[in-house]
């Protein structure tokens, strides 16, 4: 800056009122940004955490007026919660597994084979995300009703698989495409069969991206509520669906808060896992960013 020649630029700056003001203004801006971000992101989370551990929270206190764990016991022993939690985990596992079985070979085909309509098919997976989900689900519900799939586990599995397609096709497709073919040719050249090339060269190279896609699919399925709500009523009640109904129908805020925290747990665990084992750029690379 202007003080490039000076031996003590900081002192110079401190003495110069114009520069000092400029610096203060810049720092003020960052402070304001941090505060805003805190209010928008951390604020709601803190509120939920406070409510989960609050026995009593009276206006106008900023923190609960009485802390305690009694609502945890009360919530987690509710019959609907003890039924919904294993159901949600099981459902997310099944959906992720089926989605992987369908999508991963498909993504390999998208990446490696040239067939008519390839680009069109690839873009078609955007369709489910391009329109309001709710409208889509309602029209699917009409079809499912005729097929007697409403209120059944297969119905919910089907609707949730639709949600996973984009992620499970696009990320692995990009990963397969990003592998330099000459890496595979080099393995073929030293004597590996095509199957071995796939197992020992291709697969290890796409594994980070595949794990990222699978993790994201599991987490997003675990939290999926709209499809499960519309197709699953009245028999299938997943955790997010249960949370909706508890928040909507109960006067006791703590139930919702406790369930929210319980719902955070799996994604927190998985994403921590992902951060350690999946390179950070894999997910963004999946979308060609």
């Amino acid at each position: 800056m202007a003080t490039l020649t000076s031996a003590t630029p900081t002192r110079e700056m401190a003495l110069n009122p114009t520069l000092l003001w400029k610096r203060m203004r810049r720092e003020l801006l960052s402070v304001v940004l941090v505060v805003v971000l805190f209010i928008v992101i951390i604020g709601p989370m803190l509120t939920v955490i406070f409510w989960a551990f609050a026995e009593q929270w009276r206006y106008p206190s900023l923190v609960p007026t009485k802390w305690g764990l009694s609502y945890w016991q009360e919530t987690l022993t509710r019959a609907d919660v003890t039924a919904a939690l294993p159901l949600s985990i099981g459902l997310a596992t099944i959906v992720t597994f089926l989605s992987a079985v369908i999508c991963l070979p498909a993504s390999y085909a998208f990446a490696r084979m040239n067939f008519p309509g390839r680009q069109g098919f690839l873009l078609s997976f955007l369709a489910t995300n391009a329109f309001p989900r709710f409208g889509l689900y309602v029209s699917i519900a009409v079809v499912f009703f005729r097929l007697n799939l409403i209120g059944t586990l297969p119905g919910v599995i089907l609707i949730q698989i639709v949600n996973t397609l984009l992620l499970m096709i696009w990320i692995p497709t990009a990963a397969f495409q990003n592998i330099d073919r000459s890496l595979e040719e080099a393995a073929l050249d030293v004597g590996a069969s095509r199957v071995r090339v796939f197992l020992q060269i291709t697969l290890p190279l796409v594994l980070p991206a595949l794990s990222a896609a699978i993790l994201l699919t599991f987490v997003s399925t675990f939290y999926e509520a709209q499809g499960a709500l519309i197709i699953g009523v009245p028999n299938i009640q997943t955790m997010p669906v249960l949370m909706y109904s508890i928040i909507n129908s109960q006067v006791i805020v703590q139930y919702g808060a406790v369930i929210s925290l319980v719902l955070w747990l799996p994604s927190l665990l998985l994403l921590t896992f992902a951060q350690r084992f999946v390179r950070g750029n894999t997910i963004s690379a999946g979308f060609g960013v």
């Binding site: 330099d180 000459s182 890496l183 040719e185 080099a186 393995a187 073929l188 050249d189 030293v190 004597g191 590996a192 069969s193 060269i201 290890p204 190279l205």
Partner: peptide, 20 residues
């Protein structure tokens, strides 16, 4: 014969060491 059964070995233009 496919490449894996030919008595040839190739050094490619691109860097083709297996990164893993």
């Amino acid at each position: 014969l496919p490449p894996n059964r030919r008595p040839t070995a190739m050094v490619f233009q691109k860097y083709t060491l297996w990164p893993h």
